[in-house]
Structure formats: C-alpha cells, structure tokens
C-alpha cells in the first residue's frame, strides 16, 4: 500500500512536470526539434532541469542500502551497445519527430488532448502490447 501510494505521488510529480514544462504540447515539442526552422529551445531546459535534479538525487538515494518500500534497487545492468538499442532509439526518434509525442506526454494528455491524443495513445499502447506478447512467445 505504501509502495503504491508513493509511486502515485511520483506519477503526479512526473505528470505535473510534463504539463508545467509544456512537454504535453506536440506543437511545442516539434518546435524544439525544429532547429533548422523556427527553433524554440525551451525543452532543452526540461531535460537540463530533470538531469540536474536526478543526477544529484540518485547519488544521495543510491548510497542507501535499499529503497523505503522495496527489498532492493532494480537498476539496468546491461552495458553492451547492440543494434536493437540504436535501431529502437532511431525509430522512436522518428515517431517522436513526426507526432511531437513520446510515451509520458501521450499518457498525460489522455484527459485533455482530444481525439488526436486518443488515436496516438491507443495505437502506441496496442503496439507495445503486441510487441511484448510476440516477444514473450518467441
């Protein structure tokens, strides 16, 4: 219960940050990626702000033996640079550029983004589920 409430709070903060920073606005995101056009560099400050806080915060948190409500930290252990990583990131970037939406903002805009948000979110979730089901079977 304490775990679920604490992750709910994390979700609230995350979604609040996406909204305050306007990451939830596809037009704003595409203006950020439009460096050869009418560039709006604002969103670089989103990643900058998030990175500074996370960089310092992780260092303090990961000194502890374990998280507050779980047995241990679950950190990615892979360090190899394999083709799926780069191909996946590349494809994701194309989709991000085409629509101006990545997974967090796509979810966050479910209640106010209208029909286009539903189309994007529904398609993205179905694709992720299909991918995971196919991968589990192989």
């Amino acid at each position: 219960m304490r775990l679920s409430i604490s992750t709910f709070i994390s979700g609230l903060l995350f979604g609040g940050g996406l909204t305050v920073s306007q990451m939830v606005n596809p037009n704003k995101v595409m203006s950020f990626l439009d460096i050869f056009g009418d560039w709006d560099p604002s969103l670089a400050f989103v990643m900058g702000g998030a990175l500074i806080v996370t960089f310092i915060g992780y260092r303090l948190v990961l000194k502890r033996e374990r998280p507050l409500f779980e047995d241990g930290f679950r950190l990615p252990t892979r360090t190899d640079i394999d083709p799926p990583l780069l191909i996946g990131a590349g494809l994701f970037g194309v989709g991000w550029g085409l629509a101006g939406l990545c997974p967090g903002p796509a979810l966050a805009s479910a209640t106010f983004g209208g029909i286009n948000a539903y189309i994007f979110l529904g398609t993205m979730i179905m694709t992720i589920l299909l991918y995971r089901i196919v991968k589990q079977k192989t």
Binding site: G11, F14, G49, G57, F69, D71, L75
Partner: peptide
C-alpha cells in the same frame, strides 16, 4: 517554466528510486 517542469520530473524520478527502487 521548462526548467521548473524538468525539476519536477527529476524529483519524480528520484522519489521513485528512493521509495520503490525503480527507474522512472
């Protein structure tokens, strides 16, 4: 507002790690 929102996202990530031990 971008940096403020970014800092909130960072806090969310740090809190998720501190409480649940997970990557956000």
């Amino acid at each position: 507002s971008a940096a403020l929102g970014g800092a909130m996202i960072g806090l969310a990530a740090v809190w998720l790690m501190a409480s649940a031990g997970r990557i956000a």
